[in-house]
Structure formats: structure tokens, C-alpha cells
Amino acid sequence: MTPERYEKILRVLRRRQPTLTVLMDEVNKPHNFSAILRTCDAVGVLTAHAVPPKSGALPTFDATSGSAHKWVAVQTHSDALTAVRTLQAEGMQVLATHLSQRSVDYREADYTRPTCILLGAEKWGVSDEAADAADANIVIPMFGMVQSLNVSVAAATILFEAQRQRLRAGMYGTPQLAPHDLHRLAFEWAYPDLAAGYRERGEPYPALDEAGQIVR
């Protein structure tokens, strides 16, 4: 671990946004799943959520992620409706990308609030039940012959609007993670293999000095 590498890890973690996330409802194409995670990393999402496709497994990560799967944890849920209600109970507003009578332009939403963006697979979209349970439905205005975007493109469009609003509100200037969470993640990112061993033994992580070296 070099001091420069450790400083980058800390810089990224200090800008992570634990109150911004996505819920992928049966997104089944690996390149889309991976591209969404890559955008999540770019805007500071700490943990993404996913309902696995009916095959029962999350799409295989591929080169599209740019290794983002190392930096964005994925929490799985049995179904979208349960996931929506769980996230709402945790204080998140859930915004479903879904065309309905109550849909609004995605830019009208307030992304400085704790927010989860619900995304569906391209072929099926978000389920009606999950969309109805969401706090709001959002759409990206389209003026061409095609009436929808690739799901990973839609995710990027919305997430960067969330980033824009949060930057304007100064939310990237102050660490959103509690100090103990920041230390935990810094160790896991810097020393993933060692961290696994400590977790297996049920031992606390050791302290790191300013250069990212383990304090003996």
C-alpha cells in the first residue's frame, strides 16, 4: 500500500453518498448491470441494491464495470416490492423509472433527500406493483421515434442529475460516512485479503497510519 493509493481511497470514501442508491429490478444483461455499477462508483454510491433475475443469480460482472464491483457493494432482495418497502422504512424516497399518470420529469425530483432510483430490465421495465409503491415515478423526456433509453444510459442520466444537485448543496464537501465506517471501509479497500481473514476470525481491524500502513 503506497501513501498515494491510500490517500485516493480516503478521498473517495469521504465523498461517498450512503443516502443515494439504485435498486435494479431483474436487470439481466451483464453489460448493463456492470455499467450501472460503474456509474454508481462515479457519483459516489456506497451500496447498490438488486433483485436477481429469474435465473436466480446476479449477472456476471465483466469488463464494462471497470472494476467498480470492488468499490460498490451489492445487496440483494427477493423481490422489488419488498425491497421498495424496506428502503422506504430506512428513510429513502424511492423514485421508479416508470411511465404512468403520476410520472414527472426526472429533473423535478429532489435528490438531496435520501434517494433510491428504481430501475427495471429493458424488456419488462419496473413492475407495476413496485412502481405503485414507489414515492414517485420519473421519466426522461424523449423527442425521437424510440421511447426509451438503454437502462444503463437512463441510470447514468438520472444519477448525474443527482450528483449535480448534491454538488450544488455541498454534500460532497463533508464526509457522509461515520468515522468508524470510514475506517472500516478504508481497511477493506486497502487490504481486502487481510480484511477477510480478520472477519473470519471475528477480530477487529487494526489501525492504519496516515500512509495506510498497519499500526503494529
Rank of each mutant, 00 (worst) to 15 (best):
P179Q: 08
V51Q: 04
Q75M: 08
A35T: 15
I9L: 09
A96Y: 02
Y106I: 02
D181A: 07
E7P: 09
T115H: 00
S55R: 12
L167D: 04
N137K: 14
S100H: 01
T97L: 04
V126L: 01
L58K: 13
P53R: 11
V139Q: 14
T64Y: 07
R85K: 06
L208N: 09
R168D: 14
T86P: 00
F143R: 14
K29S: 04
R14G: 10
L208R: 15
R168W: 05
M24C: 12
F61K: 11
T157F: 07
F143N: 15
A178R: 14
A130H: 05
N28T: 14
T86Q: 05
L10C: 10
V84W: 01
T112A: 00
Q88T: 05
V104P: 00
V51G: 06
A207S: 13
A109V: 02
L37Y: 10
F187H: 09
P175R: 03
P114R: 01
H49N: 14
G173W: 01
A162V: 12
E90P: 00
E122H: 01
L37C: 08
L194V: 13
M145I: 15
N150L: 10
A80L: 02
M142D: 06
S152M: 10
T82S: 09
P53F: 03
L81A: 06
T2D: 06
C116K: 02
A178W: 08
R216Y: 07
K123T: 14
G125C: 05
E122D: 01
S65Y: 09
L13E: 08
P175D: 05
M24P: 10
K8R: 15
P53T: 12
L99I: 13
A178C: 01
D128F: 04
